[in-house]
């Protein structure tokens, strides 16, 4: 177990270093990205100097790195050059939206995918399986932003039954329950777009895992014991099919957040961390890029760590592997 902790620490150090280096490898610098476009500005040498020194951009890169690492350990993620705000405040204002959107999407998509995967695997080759498999593969071939755009156009613009911009109607005078309802209505389109994005891979994995589990001798034993179908399907084969699904979800979390959620948030102008990352990359806002990726990194590491513990519960054999 000690070895495991050490590997987490090494991973963390490597990642924060990469986090520092990669944004600086992007062509262009923050001052140009933030101030360069606007012709009306009077960016004199004195003003440039003042801004550079305020954001430590005039310091040598190794000093910037040292400042970055020491401030991380002090819990300070720096100060945004574009947003002119502490990075931690920016993250804190976006994270709840992403957690709700992504968390609910993961929850719903995993639930649906597992149930459909188990049922599909159980009925392999039959009409139900073929139909679901076709639908899922059909949807999985679309990029996430396309699914989002289709949902937006169909339900938001053509049918005009759901809001499709932002997370709530601002300054609408709503309060209490109607405000929460407004928030929920705004959540529906991005949420279900994301469910469609997340669902296919989990479904396919559950289905495959289910198919191979159904061939195991313990299923034969369960049948021989005269257990009913539902119990065999869910408690015996289904539960064992969850092990690879849990690993897969843990590993994919970072990718899901950056690729899937980012595009969906941009399509629906949803104020989550994806929109923040997108804008900060466009503006070469190093502190925000570093802070957002650090947050995702830590989140993925924590989830992986929790998954390590969770597997033992799912599959007690793993404990003996250490």
């Amino acid at each position: 177990m000690k070895k495991k902790y050490l590997s987490y620490i090494i991973a963390f150090i490597v990642i924060i270093t990469l986090n520092f280096i990669v944004p600086r490898l992007l062509p262009g610098d923050p001052l140009n990205a933030v101030y360069g476009d606007e012709v009306l500005l009077n960016l004199s040498a004195k003003t440039r100097e003042y801004i550079s020194s305020t954001y430590n951009l005039d310091r040598p890169v190794p000093v910037q790195y040292l400042l970055y690492v020491t401030s991380i350990f002090k819990g300070n993620l720096g100060y945004s050059i574009y947003y002119k705000k502490p990075v931690i405040d920016l993250l804190l204002s976006c994270i709840p939206y992403t957690i709700i959107l992504m968390g609910l999407a993961m929850f719903i998509s995993s639930f649906l995918a597992v149930v459909l995967g188990i049922e599909s695997g159980w009925r392999r080759g039959k009409k139900f399986d073929k139909f679901i498999l076709f639908l899922v593969i059909f949807f999985s071939s679309f990029p996430s932003f396309f699914i989002g755009a289709v949902f937006l156009i169909v339900f938001g613009v053509i049918l005009n039954i759901l809001p499709f911009q932002g997370a709530r109607t601002m300054y609408s005078g709503l309060g209490g329950f109607s405000l929460s309802l407004d928030f929920l209505l705004h959540l529906i389109l991005p949420l279900f777009s994301l469910v469609f994005v997340f669902l296919p891979s989990t479904y396919l994995l559950t289905r495959n895992s289910m198919i191979s589990n159904l061939k195991e001798p313990y299923i034969l034993l369960a049948r021989a014991k005269g257990l009913d179908d539902i119990r065999i399907r869910y408690q015996h084969a289904g539960r064992n099919s969850l092990i690879p699904v849990a690993t897969h979800t843990g590993l994919r979390l970072g990718t899901m957040m950056v690729t899937g959620t980012l595009f969906i948030e941009i399509v629906f102008s949803y104020p989550g961390i994806g929109s923040l990352i997108y804008n900060s990359i466009l503006n070469r806002d190093y502190p925000v890029i570093q802070g957002s990726f650090l947050f995702i990194t830590v989140l993925v590491l924590v989830i992986n760590f929790l998954m390590d513990i969770f597997y033992v519960k799912l599959d007690p054999r793993i404990e003996y592997a250490y």
Binding site: P96, Y97, I100, F107, Y171, G173, L179, D182, L184
Partner: peptide
């Protein structure tokens, strides 16, 4: 899990100014 999401939604949706009179 569902209950905690609902609580979170309520909390996030009620934060900040909802607005002035229409």
């Amino acid at each position: 899990t569902l209950a905690s999401f609902i609580l979170a939604i309520f909390f996030v949706s009620c934060s900040g100014i909802s607005g002035s009179s229409d």
